[in-house]
Design a binder for these strands. Sequence first.
RNA 1: GGUGGGGUACCGAAGUGGUCAACCGGGGCAGACUGUAAAUCUGCUGGCUUUGCCUUCGAAGGUUCGAGUCCUUCCCCCACCA
Length: 423
Amino acid sequence: MANVLETLRARGLFESATDEGLGHFLERPTAVYAGFDPTSDSLQVGNFVAIMGLAHFQRAGHRPVALVGGATGLIGDPSGKTAERVLLSPDQVEKNLAGIRENLSRFLDFEDRQAPARIVNNYDWIGRFTYLEFLREVGKHFRIGAMLGRESVRKRLESEAGLSYAEFSYQLIQAYDFLHLFDTEGVRVQIGGSDQWGNITAGIELIRRLRGGEAYGLTFPIVCDSSGQKFGKSEGNAIYLDARRTSYYDFYQFFIRTEDADVIRFLKIFTFLPLEEIAGLEQEMRRQPEARLPQRRLAEEVTRMVHGDRGLRIAEEASRVLFGGSIEGMSAEDLLAIFAHVPSAVICREEAIGSTVTELAVRAGLGRTKGEVRRLAQGGGLYWNGRRMTEPERHLGVGDFIEGRVAVLRAGKKQFHLIRLDG
RNA sequence: GGUGGGGUACCGAAGUGGUCAACCGGGGCAGACUGUAAAUCUGCUGGCUUUGCCUUCGAAGGUUCGAGUCCUUCCCCCACCA
C-alpha cells in the first residue's frame, strides 16, 4: 500500500499531523474526510489543495469523504478570517451546495471498488438538533478554556472586530461532524488547511472523550504565491472550478501566468505528475526560463483535470491565437470559434451602431463604468480589434465590426471580451 | 445597564466649519521594460450628458450662506465595569 504521508510530504502538501503515529496508522486502509464551505456555488482553485489531498488518499487506498458544510455554512468559520462573516441565507447555501457537489463529483472516484468516495452534508445531522439537545450532547463536553485558547478565536478576540457567539460556536459543530463521521463512516482522519488545526483537534478530543477512540488530523499549508498573497485570485476575481464562472481560457491562463518562483511548487501541489518529471522541468526552466515549459505543463495538467481534454483544447487554441499573433485579418467565423468560451456579449445591432466605444465596452463587461473604461483608454490599455483605441468617445459604425458583426475588445494584454452583433 | 474609545472610499489610515470627491500607504488596473515571469519606473483607482453637474465620510434629523468636520436621536463595533 502506497505511503500517502510520504507522498504528501514530498509534494509540499504536508504541514503537520496531530500524532506521530499517523504514518503507522495509515498502513491499513481507513477513511478520511475534508470539509468544504458553501460560500459560493462553485469551488475555487483555493479549494483545490484539499481536493488533491483527498485524491492522494484515495490513490493510496483510503476512502475519501467530502463534507459540504450545509450547517456550518450557515454559521461561518472564523478560522483565517479577520472579520465576522456576513451570514449566508439558507436558500443561498442550498444553491451553493448543489454547485459544489457538482464540482467534487469530478475529482473523486465514486465507483472505486475498494474505496469509493462519498459526499455528505453536515446539515443532515446537525440540522435535526434542537439548541438544548446540542448543548447537552455536545456543548457539555467542551471546556471554555480550551476553546478560548484556539488560535482562530484568540486572534479574533485580540482584533478590533471581535467575535460573535455564533462564530465562536463554530468549532463545536465541526468537532461534532468528525464524531458523526467517525461513527457512521468509519472516518479516522480529517485533513484541512493549517487554519483548520483548532477545529480538527477539537474533533479528535471529542471522539476520545465520548468514544475513547483514536482519530487523527493532518493539515496542509495554505498555499500562497511568492509575494505572500493567498493563492487563487486573478484580476481581482477568484478562479473557479466551474466553467460557467471562470472560462476554460481564463482558467488555463491563470496557471500559465504563474511566476517562476512558484511554478515548481505548484506543479507538486496541483498535479499528479511524478516528482522526477517535475525535477526535469525544473532543470529545463533553469536552462531557458523564457520558454516557460513548467508553466505550460502546469496549466495543461490542471486544466485537463478540471475541464477535460475538450476544455484544455479550447483554452490552448484560444491562447495560441491571442498570444501568438494578431487577430487582424481573421474572419468573423474564426473569431467566434476561438472566443466561444471567452466572456462575450451579444448586442442588438441597432443599439450598437451609433453608440460609443465606452458604452459598448461596459455592455460587454470589460469595465464596470464608463469612467473606468475612459481611464483605461487614457492610459493606453484599451484595444479594439487588436489596435489601441485612443478615441473612446467615438461613435461606432458598421465598419468597426469584422464582417459587420464581430469585434474584439481587450483591456491590457490579458483580458479579452467579444462583442457579437445580433440581427 | 454604566463609563470610555470608535464607525471615512476595496483595506489600513489622515482630515475637527469653506481652498474636500476627501492627504498618505497597501491592494487593484493600465503603460514602459520583459519571457503572458519577477524586479523597477510611470499613470489611474466616486458617477455622469465632463471647462460643469450629481451622489458619497454608520443612519436620520437639525444649526449654518456653507458640515466628513458642530448639535440631537438612533444603529453598530471595541475595552473596562455592573
